[in-house]
Amino acid sequence: MRSTYLREIFKVGKDITLPEVYVRVKNPVAYVGGKPVSQRPILAFFAGQMHGKVRPILLKYWENKDPDMKILGPKFYGIGKKGPYIEYMKLSKYCICPKGYEVNSPRVMEAIYFECVPVIISDNFVLPFDNILNWKAFSVVILERDIPRLKEILLSISEKRYLTMQARVKRVQKHFLWHNKPVKYDLFHMILHSIWHNRIHNMRL
């Protein structure tokens, strides 16, 4: 769905946003985990296709502009199961998650899987399980117009706050993991709970 379409039909408090994930059938939790904070030399990382209006703006300001900001275009992309894309996420403090054609993106979940603090760039995104989880505690949300100030915004976050957010990413990770057999508080249970929460809320209105 395109973001304009979502704005027209999404009803906050009634509808829910589902996490966009790639499910590996044989081993759903393969490659989950990341480097310790002390082994994350990259401030921010992004690599992806140039669909939508936000990503080209991101590359215009940051591609090959700053050694601390690994902002790369589609030539790098090719995720692959063991490709450099995953390694860059595991080596980065912040993983940039700009919207493409759609508001949602599996990149947000990938950041959480690899214990990288997600930086979400989208003006119209109701985050998954926002009726349950406090996303401000473990992610950064940036308006599209603030892309030129991206590094400034990230550097303004204190080391203490970053460490707290990164620890919370690791803590909430279990809520976004899919298992062949459901595990308590995993993605399967979170989806059901989110639907139930909104259902109960609307019955009380």
Rank of each mutant, 00 (worst) to 15 (best):
R2L: 13
T4R: 13
Y5D: 13
E8G: 05
F10Q: 08
V12A: 12
K14P: 05
I16R: 04
I16D: 07
T17C: 14
L18Q: 03
P19T: 12
E20H: 12
E20N: 13
V21F: 04
V21A: 13
V21L: 14
V21P: 02
R24Y: 15
V25W: 14
V25R: 09
N27Q: 11
Y31C: 13
Y31F: 12
G34K: 01
V37G: 06
S38W: 02
A44K: 02
F46R: 01
G48H: 06
M50G: 11
H51S: 10
K53D: 15
R55K: 03
I57A: 10
K60T: 11
Y61Q: 09
W62K: 02
W62T: 03
K65C: 13
D66L: 09
D66S: 14
D68H: 12
G73N: 13
G73A: 10
P74F: 10
P74K: 14
P74V: 08
K75I: 08
K75L: 09
F76L: 07
F76G: 01
G78K: 15
I79L: 12
K81E: 09
G83T: 03
G83I: 07
P84I: 13
I86P: 04
E87W: 05
Y88I: 01
Y88S: 04
K90Y: 09
K90C: 08
K90N: 05
S92C: 05
K93G: 04
C95S: 12
I96F: 00
C97E: 01
K99W: 04
Y101M: 12
E102D: 14
E102Y: 07
E102C: 07
P106T: 06
R107Q: 05
A111M: 07
I112C: 04
Y113M: 14
F114W: 14
E115R: 06
C116S: 10
C116M: 08
P118W: 02
I120G: 00
S122I: 05
S122W: 01
N124Y: 15
W135H: 14
K136P: 05
F138L: 00
V140Y: 00
I142M: 01
R145L: 12
D146A: 04
D146F: 06
I147K: 00
P148E: 06
K151A: 07
I153P: 01
L154E: 05
L154H: 04
L154A: 02
L154C: 04
S156L: 03
E159F: 06
E159A: 06
E159G: 02
L163G: 02
L163K: 05
L163Q: 07
A167G: 08
A167F: 02
K170Q: 13
K174W: 09
K174T: 08
K174E: 14
F176S: 04
F176G: 02
W178P: 02
P182A: 11
V183C: 04
Y185W: 15
Y185I: 08
Y185N: 15
D186H: 07
F188M: 10
I191Q: 06
L192Q: 13
L192N: 14
S194I: 06
W196G: 00
H197Q: 13
R199Y: 15
I200H: 07
I200F: 10
H201S: 11
H201V: 09
H201K: 15
M203Q: 12
L205F: 11
L205D: 08
